[in-house]
C-alpha cells in the first residue's frame, strides 16, 4: 500500500503517490529540484514569502503546473497560520476569490474538479486527501500546532459534513516532513499535547535519558503518527493512509528543511504538496 514513486517531469523531481494516481488524482510532493530560485541556485521554492523574488515563485509554480500537465488550472494555496482552520471552495466565486487572495487557514477542501490545491511546507507535514467516489480533494498543512488543534481530523469532518464524503472512500497520502528521528520538542510542547490528547505517550520518544522521562526537555515528537491517528479516528481505514516516511532533515539534499537550514536567519525554500482531479 505504501507506494510512492520519484518521477522526473519537466525538469522537476516529484514524489507521487501511485495509489492516488491510480484512483484518478493528479498529485505530487515537490523536491528542491527544477526551479529558478537562488536557495541555492536552481531550486524549486514554491512558498510565497519575502525572501525570494515573487517572479521566481511564479515561474516555479508555473513549472509545477506544466510538470503536472495542467498549466491551465488555478493552483489554490493558503496563507498558512498553524491553525486548525479549514477553508472550503465550492463555487466558481469561491475559487476566483481564493486564487486572487490565498485564504487564511491550514487546510483547503474542494468538490471542484477544475482546480489544483497546494500546501507549502519545509518540515511541517503535508497531507493530500482524495475522495474516490465524489472526486473531492483536500490539502492539509500540519505542523505541531495545527496537529495539536486537530487539523487533519477537522479536514475529514469538513469533507464528510459539507462535501458528502464518506471516510471509507477517502485516501490520504502523507508527504515528506521532519521525522520522529529529528523532531525534538520541548517539555512545554509535550505538556500541551498531554492536555488535549490521550495518545501523547505514543507520540513521544526519549533519547539518552533513563530517569524523569519527559521532564528533561529532550523529547522527540512523531508528527506523522499523530496525524495518522487523527485520520484513523476520523474514520479512514488504515489501509487508506499512505506515508512516504521521508524525513526532511535526513534527506536534506532532496528536501527543504526549515530547522536544518536554520530558517530564522537563512532563506529556506518551501516545497508543495499538490492534488487535483484528473479529467
Amino acid at each position: 500500500m505504501d507506494h510512492f514513486n520519484f518521477r522526473q517531469a519537466g525538469g522537476l523531481e516529484l514524489l507521487v503517490s501511485a495509489t492516488l494516481e491510480a484512483s484518478g488524482f493528479i498529485n505530487a510532493f515537490t523536491t528542491r529540484q527544477g526551479g529558478v530560485s537562488p536557495l541555492p541556485a536552481g531550486t524549486l521554492n514554491l512558498g510565497n514569502f519575502s525572501q525570494d523574488d515573487h517572479l521566481n515563485i511564479n515561474e516555479n509554480r508555473r513549472r509545477l503546473k506544466v510538470a503536472l500537465d495542467h498549466n491551465e488550472r488555478p493552483l489554490l494555496t493558503l496563507q498558512q497560520i498553524h491553525s486548525a482552520d479549514v477553508h472550503r471552495v465550492t463555487t466558481p466565486e469561491d475559487a476566483a476569490r481564493a486564487s486572487l487572495e490565498p485564504p487564511i487557514g491550514d487546510a483547503l477542501v474542494t468538490s471542484r474538479r477544475d482546480l489544483l490545491l497546494g500546501v507549502q511546507t519545509a518540515d511541517c507535514l503535508p497531507i493530500l486527501i482524495a475522495d474516490r467516489r465524489t472526486g473531492a480533494t483536500a490539502v492539509v498543512h500540519a505542523g505541531w500546532r495545527g496537529t495539536l488543534a486537530g487539523i487533519a481530523r477537522r479536514t475529514v469532518e469538513e469533507m464528510r459534513e459539507r462535501l458528502d464524503s464518506s471516510p471509507a472512500d477517502l485516501l490520504a497520502a502523507i508527504g515528506p516532513a521532519i521525522g520522529p528521528c529529528c523532531f525534538e520538542v520541548g517539555y512545554e510542547v509535550v505538556e500541551q499535547f498531554r492536555t488535549v490528547w490521550s495518545h501523547t505517550a505514543e507520540l513521544i520518544s526519549q533519547s539518552g535519558q533513563v530517569h524523569n522521562p519527559g521532564q528533561d526537555g529532550r523529547v522527540h515528537l512523531d508528527l506523522s503518527l499523530a496525524n495518522r491517528l487523527q485520520l484513523r479516528e476520523a474514520g479512514l481505514p488504515d489501509t487508506s493512509i499512505e506515508d512516504c516516511n521521508l524525513c526532511t532533515i535526513c534527506h536534506n539534499h532532496r528536501f527543504f528543511s526549515y530547522r536544518f537550514e536554520n530558517g530564522a536567519v537563512n532563506p529556506v525554500g518551501r516545497m508543495m504538496g499538490v492534488i487535483g482531479w484528473r479529467e
Partner: peptide
C-alpha cells in the same frame, strides 16, 4: 504506550543518508 516509544539515542540530526527510491521498497 511503551510499545510505541521509540528510542533514538542519537541527539545530532543525522546527515543526509542515501536517497530512498522506489527501488528501496
Amino acid at each position: 504506550s511503551s510499545v510505541l516509544a521509540q528510542n533514538d539515542p542519537q541527539p545530532v540530526p543525522p546527515v543526509s543518508g542515501p536517497p530512498a527510491t522506489s527501488a528501496d521498497r
